[in-house]
Computed example of a mutant assay.
Amino acid sequence: MNSQIIDTIKQFDTIIIHRHVRPDPDAYGSQLGLKYLLQHNYPTKRILAAGEHDFTLDFLDFPDAVKDADFEGALVIVTDTANTERVDDQRYLQGTKVIKIDHHPNDDAYGDVVWVDISASSASELVYELFTYGQQNEGWALPNKAARLLYAGIVGDTGRFLFPSATQKTFEIAGELIKYDFDRTALYNGMYEMDRSLLHLQGYIYQNFKMDESGAAYVKITLEILKEFGVTATETSLLVSSLGNVKGMKAWVIFIEEETEIRVRLRSKGPVINELAKEFGGGGHPMASGATAYSWEEADRVIDRLIEICSS
C-alpha cells in the first residue's frame, strides 16, 4: 500500500491534503506533518493543506488558503477522516484522484486508494510508517517540523500514551520522533495548558456530572453555562477526558450545546461505544467517539442507550 501511495504522489504536481472538521492534534498532525514531509522530499511539487483553522490549535500550525483553481488536476489526500461527511472542505471531490489514510473503522470506504489500519494509534502513526517506507525505498528524510507534528498527533490520540491504542509500535515510533529537534515541553504546554475560565468549567463538570449504578455517566453543558464561564464549544474539547479518573465509571458522555445542535462526546474505559455513536449520526473509535443530537430529548436517549450498554 505504501508503494502505491508513493507511486501515486509521484504522478501529480499539485497535492492538496484534507482532514476532518473540528480538528484535533492528530488531524493537524497527520495532515500538516504529511504536508511538510512531502514538501521536503518533493520540493518542486505544490503541497497545500485545506480546511478551516481552529484557533485552539494555533500552537501547532495553520492550514493554507486553497483556491478552487488549485484542485484542477490535483491529487487529494484525506487523513484521519472516517467518512465523507466529516471531510473539512468538500471541494476535495474536485481533485483528480483521492487517497484515504485513516485509522478509524472503514465504514465509508471512499477514495481511489484506501489505506486504513485500525490497529494504528493515530493517523500520524500511519504517516510515520509511510515515511519509513519512503526512507528505505526513496531516500526520504523527515524534517523537524514534520516530526513535531506527527509526535503531537500520536500524543493527542493516545491520551499521552494512556489509551490501549498505544501499542509497542506506537512507543517505538515516539522514541524515534523525539530524536528530532523540537521543544517537547513547549508542545505539551500548547496541548494541555488551559485558561482559567476552562479550568473553572472543568470544576463545574466535576461537581455536576451524574453517574448511574451501571457505571454510565453524563454531564450537560448548555449555552447558558458556556456563556457563564466564558468558554466556547470548541474549547471544551480539552475537557472530554476529565471524567476518566472517576472510580467505578465505565463510560461517559459530555453534551455541549451549540446554536443549532448538541455535540455528543463519548468516551469509555471498557464498553464499546462507537456503535452507539453511529445510532446518532456519528462514529469513531470503540473507546472514543462523537455524534450529534438535535434536542435535549434526543440527548436523553443517548444517555439511556449508554446505560444499557454499561449494564450489559
Rank of each mutant, 00 (worst) to 15 (best):
Gly134Pro: 05
Val78Cys: 07
Glu138Cys: 05
Arg86Ser: 02
Ser119Cys: 08
Phe62Leu: 13
Thr132Lys: 11
Arg86Cys: 08
Asn83Pro: 00
Asn137Met: 14
Ala82His: 05
Gly139Glu: 07
Val113Phe: 00
Thr84Ala: 14
Asn137Trp: 15
Tyr42Gln: 00
Leu48Val: 00
Ala82Lys: 02
Asp107Val: 15
Tyr128Gly: 01
Tyr133Thr: 03
His53Gly: 09
Gln31Phe: 01
Ile77Lys: 06
Asp68Glu: 13
Tyr151Arg: 07
Asn41Asp: 06
Thr81Asn: 15
Asp108Ser: 07
Pro143Asn: 14
Pro143Gly: 02
Val114Gln: 06
Leu38Thr: 11
Asn41Met: 01
Asp58Thr: 15
Val127Gly: 01
Gly139Arg: 09
Glu129Val: 02
Pro143Glu: 03
Ser119Lys: 08
Pro63Ser: 07
Arg46Trp: 04
Tyr110Gly: 08
Thr44Asn: 04
Phe55Ala: 11
Gly33Asp: 03
Leu32Thr: 10
Phe59Glu: 10
Leu60Ala: 05
Val114Ser: 01
Asn41Tyr: 00
Trp115Met: 13
Gln90Phe: 08
Gly73Phe: 05
Val98Cys: 04
Gln136Pro: 00
Ala82Tyr: 11
Trp140Asp: 12
Lys100Asn: 13
Glu129Ala: 08
Gln31Lys: 03
Leu32Asp: 11
Ala141Trp: 07
Asp88Asn: 12
His53Arg: 14
Val78Gly: 00
Arg46Gln: 14
Leu37Cys: 04
Pro105Gln: 15
Leu48Gly: 01
Glu72Pro: 06
Ala74Thr: 08
Thr44Arg: 03
Gln136Met: 10
Gln94Val: 03
Leu38Val: 11
Ala74Arg: 00
Leu34Glu: 02
Asp107Leu: 15
Phe62Tyr: 12
Phe55His: 08
Gln90Ile: 06
Leu57Ser: 09
Trp140Asn: 10
Ala50Leu: 02
Leu150Trp: 01
Ala69Arg: 14
Leu32Gly: 07
Leu93Arg: 09
Ile47Ala: 12
Asn106Trp: 01
Lys67Trp: 07
Gln90His: 12
Glu52Gly: 02
Gln31Leu: 02
Tyr42His: 09
Leu149Ser: 11
Ala120Lys: 05
Thr84Lys: 09
Leu126Thr: 13
Glu125Ser: 10
Leu57Phe: 14
Leu37Val: 04
Thr44Ile: 06
Gly51Val: 07
Tyr151Cys: 08
Phe59Gln: 05
Asp108His: 00
Gly73Thr: 10
Ala152Ser: 15
Gly51Arg: 09
Arg46Phe: 01
Gly95Asp: 02
Glu85Phe: 12
Tyr110Glu: 08
Gln31Met: 09
Val78Asp: 00
Gln39Thr: 06
Pro105Thr: 15
Leu75Phe: 15
Ala123Asp: 04
Ala109Arg: 13
Leu142Glu: 03
Phe131Thr: 03
Glu72Val: 10
Val113Ile: 15
Gln39Gly: 02
Val66Lys: 00
Ser121Gly: 07
His40Gln: 12
Ile77Ala: 13
Tyr128Arg: 06
Glu138Asn: 14
Ala152Asn: 07
Gln39Arg: 04
Asn144Tyr: 06
Tyr133Ile: 02
Ile118Thr: 15
Gln39Asp: 04
Asn83Met: 09
Ala147Arg: 00
Leu32Asn: 08
Thr81Cys: 15
Tyr133Trp: 15
